[in-house]
């Protein structure tokens, strides 16, 4: 339980978190399928979760892990609402294409 997390290993974990977050961001921007766009937000959550937990171990308190619980809560709420929205939008246009809803683009 008291194995230390050295700075070297910490920066490794933060690196993974950053890469996952960046990949999620790229996916959210490039993909046009609404479902995959929301999957990419979950990918970004994953990056944040890894960063939070590694910092939690590095600093030796459990705040970071506690916050992961809140992240999971938000992710669950987001999945419920976003997927409900996706089904609703799909019923309206018969497509999952995000650009089909770009009415405000001008």
């Amino acid at each position: 339980m008291s194995t230390p997390l050295s700075g070297m290993l910490l920066s490794h974990f933060l690196m993974t978190g950053a890469i996952l977050f960046g990949l999620g961001l790229i996916g959210f921007v490039t993909r046009r399928n609404l479902i995959i766009m929301f999957l990419c937000t979950e990918l970004m959550f994953q990056g944040v979760v890894i960063s939070l937990v590694s910092l939690s171990l590095h600093h030796g308190n459990f705040e970071g892990q506690t916050f992961v619980i809140f992240v999971l809560t938000i992710a669950a709420a987001e999945a419920a609402l976003a997927l409900g929205l996706v089904v609703l939008l799909y019923r309206g246009r018969k497509t999952l294409d995000g650009t089909a809803w770009a009415l405000l683009r001008g």
């Binding site: 960046g22 990949l23 961001l25 790229i26 921007v29 490039t30 993909r31 046009r32 399928n33 995959i36 497509t95 999952l96 294409d97 995000g98 650009t99």
Partner: peptide, 16 residues
């Protein structure tokens, strides 16, 4: 819309 990504080059550049 699944087969063609939207502006992949720009997005990848910004993301990386």
């Amino acid at each position: 819309y699944d087969r063609v990504a939207r502006e992949p080059v720009l997005a990848v550049l910004v993301g990386f």
